[in-house]
């Protein structure tokens, strides 16, 4: 007991230091994270629940919600397929240029959203590479839904791959190789061996990708053209309402996006908790599966 007590004393701080540090950290988190979040809901409900619903019932708000859902429904599955394919080839094999490829996959993270929007305007806009051809065939990409989807895909491009690559690298190839040696096909190996191992990372990647896809502002704002009721996503609709001094309506649409963010955080916490528990359960198992148990330690 005494040795435990001394151990605790020498590797932590005096109580007053501890409480001061916790106090400053909590104050910072309160000011920069809690207050902005609380402000969204308070501003939305400033004139009561009726006014709040009024902001959401507007047809333009509805079409913005629909467009946002459509965009995410296209962008997220495409990036999911890409993320799994990229993680498979980067994590499971050695080849020349692998580090360079990994950097390229990360690239959209560091490109400004405004630049991301601009590159599609330069490709498909009236002045762009394919502009004249698209105009001749009466296809609209910029200032229309395809442009919004493309810009969203660009901005959320690395999310799922980024979650999966380190996870699949840490797990190695042993289990997949065993499956192949035992006669499984490639698809069977993926479905029955790899997928159960990566499912939590995959879920986390998908919800982050989805949150970002629904909330993207800069890139979408460049390519959308801001046509009310047609090419406005929810964040763009928030901007228009806010600039028109319709504060309550702006914040009520914003509150839906804030709710989405909260749900994302909750799912993330649950996923982490489940993952830890599985690791713990594997560690508690008798050593028939030594590999899993060792990783959990």
């Amino acid at each position: 007991m005494t040795s435990l007590a001394t151990k605790r004393v020498i590797t932590t701080e005096a109580p007053w230091v501890r409480f001061t540090l916790i106090g400053i950290a909590l104050a910072f988190v309160f000011l920069f994270l809690v207050l902005p979040l609380a402000a969204v809901f308070t501003e939305a409900l400033r004139k009561g629940f009726g006014a709040y619903l009024e902001g959401l019932r507007e047809p333009d708000a509805w079409s913005a919600i629909k467009l946002t859902l459509i965009t995410a429904a296209i962008a997220v599955p495409l990036n999911l397929v890409f993320g799994v394919a990229a993680a498979w080839c980067i994590a499971k094999y050695e080849f020349r240029g692998k580090a360079f490829l990994t950097t390229l996959v990360d690239l959209p993270f560091s490109v400004s959203p405004v630049v991301a929007g601009l590159i599609y305007v330069l490709m498909f806009g009236a002045q762009g590479w394919f502009g004249p051809w698209l105009a001749a065939h009466d296809i609209k990409i910029i200032f229309a839904i395809p442009g919004i989807v493309l810009a969203t895909i660009f901005v959320t491009f690395p999310f799922i791959a980024r979650e999966l690559i380190p996870l699949m690298q840490a797990q190695g190839n042993d289990e997949e190789q065993a499956a192949i040696v035992l006669g499984a096909t490639g698809w069977q190996t993926f479905w029955y061996v790899t997928l159960p191992n990566i499912k939590w990372g995959l879920i986390y990647g998908v919800i982050l990708c989805n949150a970002r896809a629904m909330g993207e502002f800069g890139a979408v704002s460049v390519v959308s053209g801001h046509i009310r009721g047609q090419t406005n996503t929810m964040p763009l609709h928030v901007e228009i309402l806010y600039n028109e001094y319709q504060s309550v309506a702006a914040f009520s649409v914003a509150s839906l996006l804030a709710l989405l963010a909260l749900v994302t955080l909750v799912i993330k916490s649950v996923v982490e908790w489940r993952h830890e528990r599985e690791m713990q359960a594997a560690a508690d198992l008798p050593p028939e599966r030594p590999l899993v148990a060792k990783e959990a330690l």
Partner: peptide, 12 residues
């Protein structure tokens, strides 16, 4: 990471 930037902007 999760809160759309426009929402953060108007709320700040």
């Amino acid at each position: 990471f999760a809160l759309p930037t426009a929402v953060a902007g108007i709320s700040l």
